[in-house]
């Protein structure tokens, strides 16, 4: 699978959980692995790239860390959108 295709898959996975479940990095990696059978390290790499460019972000709430889709406010603060 192309990196961009995999990343779209990861994004869709996070979008589906939005507002329902706080995803940990592990939940995403295991979820995509179960869906696609792709290598976990490869999924992790794709996920990390997305976090590095602000397509996803690490979040914190309720005493634990999670991964989610950044808000516009976050992206604006990081100078990723105007």
């Amino acid at each position: 699978m192309e990196m961009s295709e995999l990343q779209d898959k990861i994004f869709a996975f996070c979008e589906a959980a939005k507002g329902k479940k706080k995803l940990k990095e592990k939940d995403i990696i295991n979820g995509i692995n179960a869906e696609s059978g792709l290598d976990k390290d490869e999924i992790k790499k794709a996920l990390r790239e997305m976090i590095n460019v602000g397509r996803l972000m690490y979040s914190y709430g309720g005493g634990a860390s999670s991964v989610e889709i950044p808000s516009e406010e976050y992206l604006r603060e990081k100078g990723l959108i105007k």
Binding site: I51, G54, M57, S59, Y60, G61, S65, Y74
Partner: peptide, 17 residues
Amino acid sequence: KHGGIVGVLGYGGGVIG
């Protein structure tokens, strides 16, 4: 208030909102 979602790009820790 409870800690919020803040941090530096790429990291998930080191800053406490």
